[in-house]
């Protein structure tokens, strides 16, 4: 489902004398449907960089990144947008939303974007918010007013609203209390059972051990500086 092949990444800092910083080379990995793979490595090893490249947020300098058959490294923006809408989900560490938009709308949005009708999308969003223990009285408020943990749970609800065949998780259990952490791990397990290919970063070793089938040390892809 996710197939990274010999990917290279460099950053060129034009405003600092055109310094070229190679950060990754020969990155290759493969995540099959129903599999959860953890990226490991020291801070700064390039875990997030690799995830961002898979999502199309960073440009790969060379190599191929196929997700559901589309090579993200060379695809047109609108192809990537379509991929993100239907196939590839991403739960980042931080919630970024438009001010004023109510929590329920924020969570419904990925479903609506796929053409799901409003009633069904709302039902799904309600279920997820309830499961993640966001009090119902908060659903009509913008999540920007919430605590960090609540924001993270809204973010997870949003990321799981549509059942993406491929999912990228960046520290999904960080800053969660034990009960909610447990719920999120259940949700990941369910997504796996549903056939999703999951690539994630988990600093929480116990969580990693519970949901991940394999670990890949990104340090192996470090570019020779």
């Amino acid at each position: 489902m996710i197939d990274v092949e010999n990917v290279t990444k460099t950053f060129t800092l034009h405003n600092q004398g055109g310094a070229v910083i190679p950060v990754m080379q020969g990155a290759s990995l493969r995540v099959a449907p129903g599999e959860c793979v953890a990226l490991t490595g020291a801070s700064g090893a390039g875990k997030s960089t690799l995830m961002r490249m898979v999502y199309g947020n960073y440009l790969a300098a060379s190599g191929a990144i196929r997700v559901g058959g589309l090579d993200v490294a060379t695809a047109e923006p609108r192809e990537i947008l379509a991929l993100r809408r239907r196939t590839l989900g991403y739960v980042s560490q931080f919630l970024r939303v438009v001010p004023r938009v109510p929590t329920l709308e924020v969570v419904m949005e990925p479903c609506l974007a796929t053409g799901m009708d409003r009633a069904a999308a709302e039902e799904r969003a309600r279920g997820l918010l309830a499961r993640l223990r966001i009090p119902e009285r908060l659903w009509s408020l913008s999540p920007l007013t919430f605590s960090g943990g609540e924001q993270q749970r809204v973010n997870i609800a949003r990321g799981f609203a549509h059942e993406y065949p491929a999912l990228l998780l960046d520290e999904p259990t960080a800053s969660l209390d034990p009960a909610n952490r447990e719920t999120v791990l259940e949700m990941i397990a369910e997504a796996k059972a549903g056939g999703a290919a999951i690539l994630g970063i988990f600093h929480d070793a116990e969580a990693r051990a519970r949901v991940c089938d394999r670990e890949i040390d990104v340090g192996a892809f470090a570019a020779a500086a």
Binding site: F11, L81, A82, R84, Y90, E109
Partner: peptide
């Protein structure tokens, strides 16, 4: 190690454009 420090998240629209068809 990244060129920008801005954290990234999918835009709230999740990219609705360019829908096939």
């Amino acid at each position: 190690m990244s060129a920008t420090s801005a954290d990234f998240a999918p835009s709230p629209d999740g990219g609705r454009a360019g829908e096939g068809g």
